[in-house]
Amino acid sequence: MGLNAALAVHPASGRGAAARIAEAVAARLRPAVDRLDILTAGSVEESRALMRSAHAEGLDALIVLGGDGAAHQGVQFCADHGVALGLVPSGTGNDFARALGVPADPRAATDVLAKALQAGRRRSVDLGRLGETWFATVLCAGFDAAVNARANAMRWPAGPRRYDLAILAELAAFRPRPIVLHTDDGVLELEATLVAAGNTPYYGGGVPICPAADPEDGLFDVTVIGTPGRARLLRMLPHLRTGEHVGRPTVHTFRTRTLRIEAPGWPVYADGEDQGGAPAEATCVPSALTVVS
């Protein structure tokens, strides 16, 4: 049997970038596979239906052309159906692709992916599990989740700059709260501004909130920012971009396989997608996803 692949295209990703380059990406992939179906979807429901239809016809690999939202949907499908996932980044954040070492340029990423498909290269990576939802990058609660919600609602600007502006806007409204964290090693109670559990390091378009997170070690890297106050938090923000925040006195880090966050009223996001509010309980599932790499 030959290699049956599908290219899932999310036309709105990257302000239409995915739609503009879809044919060029498909042309680069076709020589590497025996069959390539194009799945173009305008909604999550349509995307899932197309993926299920492709799976019924013997799908071996799903290539997602889009941003982190599109990657998140691909992760759900591939983890549940045992299909290998490939990524061609064309969104504004591309944090999962970044963590996997995928080239930022879509055409370069496609060429690397085509070679990996031809060579049969695969590797297994961990995923987080939150209820019935898989996540590949970071689960966040508190200030950073509120920032994520605000950034998602903003139409301008594009890219990481939008996240930076959302941070500044949210600083005026957010208040630290008492939280309880249940971990593998016990219970931690403290006042905090945010909690981030990273399967991979990045969120928010390249912010290494959990800089040492490794998607092949079976553990979350957890970053908790306590109560530095607005002024100190503002001064800390540039260090988030470099990962140097983990050395600050009000920042706590640890590793755990399971994490329950009890913080009533706090918003919770995973892979940049709204997951409702706390309490939230997540588990790191080793080797839950196969990626073409």
Rank of each mutant, 00 (worst) to 15 (best):
V9F: 02
P11A: 07
A22G: 05
A24Q: 07
V25R: 00
A27Y: 07
D34Y: 15
L36R: 12
L39P: 01
E45T: 06
E45Q: 09
S47Q: 14
R48T: 05
R48C: 12
A49K: 07
S53E: 15
A54K: 00
H55R: 12
E57N: 12
D60P: 13
A61W: 10
D80G: 10
D80K: 10
G82Y: 07
G82E: 07
S90W: 10
T92I: 00
A97Y: 01
R98H: 03
A99D: 01
D105C: 00
A109D: 01
A114V: 07
R122Q: 05
L127S: 05
G131I: 00
V138W: 04
C140A: 14
C140I: 04
G142V: 00
A153V: 06
P157R: 02
P160Y: 08
R161A: 09
R162A: 10
R162W: 10
Y163H: 09
Y163K: 02
D164N: 11
A173Q: 14
A173K: 11
F174H: 13
R177E: 06
V180G: 06
V180N: 04
H182G: 03
T183M: 11
D185S: 14
L188V: 09
E189N: 09
A196S: 04
A213S: 05
D217K: 03
L219P: 01
I225A: 15
T227I: 06
T227H: 08
P228M: 09
G229W: 07
G229Y: 09
R241T: 14
E244P: 07
V251G: 08
F254S: 14
F254G: 14
R257Y: 12
R257D: 15
P264D: 04
G272E: 06
G272R: 03
E273K: 04
E281H: 11
T283G: 13
S293Y: 03
